[in-house]
């Protein structure tokens, strides 16, 4: 019995040792827990229908057709309702769909759609959309879906957008440490700013 107890203690000890050791390893930067909460929007906006690939029934509209300030401002911006109506007033085929009817209700009432924020950074962080778009979209000439997707995930496959990346400081820094080519045809590389004052305000 004593022998059994001893071996049991040993086994249990070994198990805990092994499991504690496993947590010592560096955690991966993205885990399923990083997926943000499901945000209920006033209109269930189908991103996949607008921005998705053609084979999935999407129209491959550039993200920056609607989020137009991303390339020239700190914030990407939520499109005004005029932008939606601009196209949808001449798309008769979907006019009777419930989501579109809701859209026109807001339009007729002259009220903005109260969208809720999905990617909400703390107030002490200065994130600049313009710099990232300029660097990766215009200078490196990468596809916009990839560039926006670095931080926003695979929005073109989503209906209502949901946070897919952790958007924490360690996660930002993991990319800022990497060497990225300066332009599409250059072998020269550089990395993002690494000094606290650039991003912390």
């Amino acid at each position: 019995m004593k022998c059994f107890l001893r071996s049991l203690t040993l086994l249990v000890g070994l198990f805990f040792y092994a499991s504690s050791h496993a947590t010592d390893a560096l955690p991966t930067l993205t885990t399923p827990d990083d997926v943000g909460p499901v945000v209920e929007q006033p209109i269930e906006f189908p991103h996949f229908r607008h921005a998705g690939d053609a084979k999935d029934g999407g129209m491959q509209i550039n993200c920056m057709y609607c989020h137009t300030y991303a390339r020239r401002s700190m914030v990407a911006g939520i499109p005004p309702i005029q932008k939606c109506i601009g196209c949808h007033q001449s798309i008769e085929s979907v006019r009777d769909k419930p989501r579109i009817q809701k859209l026109f209700e807001y339009w007729d009432a002259k009220k903005p759609i109260p969208w809720k924020k999905v990617h909400d950074l703390p107030d002490f962080v200065r994130f600049n959309h313009e710099r990232h778009i300029q660097r990766f979209y215009f200078q490196q000439d990468r596809p916009y879906q990839e560039v926006c997707g670095y931080c926003h995930g695979n929005v073109k496959a989503m209906t209502v957008a949901q946070r897919q990346k952790p958007i924490t400081m360690g996660w930002c820094a993991s990319c800022h440490q990497k060497d990225h080519p300066v332009s599409a045809n250059s072998s020269e590389t550089g990395h993002g700013p690494n000094d606290c004052f650039t991003c912390h305000k």
Binding site: G170, A173, S174, Q177, D195
Partner: peptide, 10 residues
Amino acid sequence: MSVSNLLENW
């Protein structure tokens, strides 16, 4: 990772 990086730059 980030701490060592910070100290280096610091």
